[in-house]
Design a protein around this nucleic acid. Sequence first.
DNA 1: CAGGATCCCCCTTGATACTG
DNA 2: CAGTATCAAGGGGGATCCTG
Lengths: 142, 142
Amino acid sequence: MDTTFPDLRQYGGADAFLEACKPRAILDMLTGKWSTLVMGALLDGPRRFNELRRMLDGITQKMLSQTLRALERDGIVTRTVYPTIPPRVDYELTPLGRSAGGLLMAIADWSNQHADDVFAARRAYDERAAEPVQPVLPKIPI
Amino acid sequence: MDTTFPDLRQYGGADAFLEACKPRAILDMLTGKWSTLVMGALLDGPRRFNELRRMLDGITQKMLSQTLRALERDGIVTRTVYPTIPPRVDYELTPLGRSAGGLLMAIADWSNQHADDVFAARRAYDERAAEPVQPVLPKIPI
DNA sequence: CAGGATCCCCCTTGATACTG
DNA sequence: CAGTATCAAGGGGGATCCTG
């Protein structure tokens, strides 16, 4: 095995990402279609509900409030209600949320470095799949 | 805004994770229920199909072959067919795949450091939700 | 303004059976 | 051994309507 890359086995290999384990839960937390976008929208500071809705063009109220509730539950954002009329609610990243932003940064970093490779591999694979079927090799008896 | 954490805005904030953008595609690639497990199972070297199936207890043939095909398409694993009888197929991580393993490592790292905070926040939130409803504050006219 | 409640659809996952 | 094909189920996500 080449040693160009760090030995990941210290993290437990496949076991490190079993459904019941923590990295899986974290991955699921970041995985929602909108979670990353909401966190990204909060990087500059607190935002109000409809402010977020405008920033995340295309999100529905349901998904926005659902995503915000999940992030609040996970300690990623705080929800501050001002008992004014009309009501005002601010959402803001917690320190933990900003730390999670660092994780997103790592993903974006990796993506900047390797996404093109992935897409190139994808194109190559799809082209190969479009080619005519290769003739069957003569069977070699054991 | 505190500067304890790196400024993520250089990555484009929410825009950096829009559906059409690359980090989103990479996240989706890692996100599949079995992708991380398969990659983890391949860290030690090449594996055969049924070998992986045994390692990933609970995975169905369908999901395993589906996951492997997706990873092959993305250039994460290679598929090597030996035209013997019975047939033998080896799957192995590519350099790109091992690099992606580094990304998983970053996630596992963050998880080791912060997952407990997330779970604690989650418990606290759920307990608050179980409490009796707070009395409604008297409305303060504008 | 900030959501809650509903209905619905599609896509992923799973179970089962069959094949080269 | 290494898959593919088919069918059934469940949940995430979206559209819409309603409320304090």
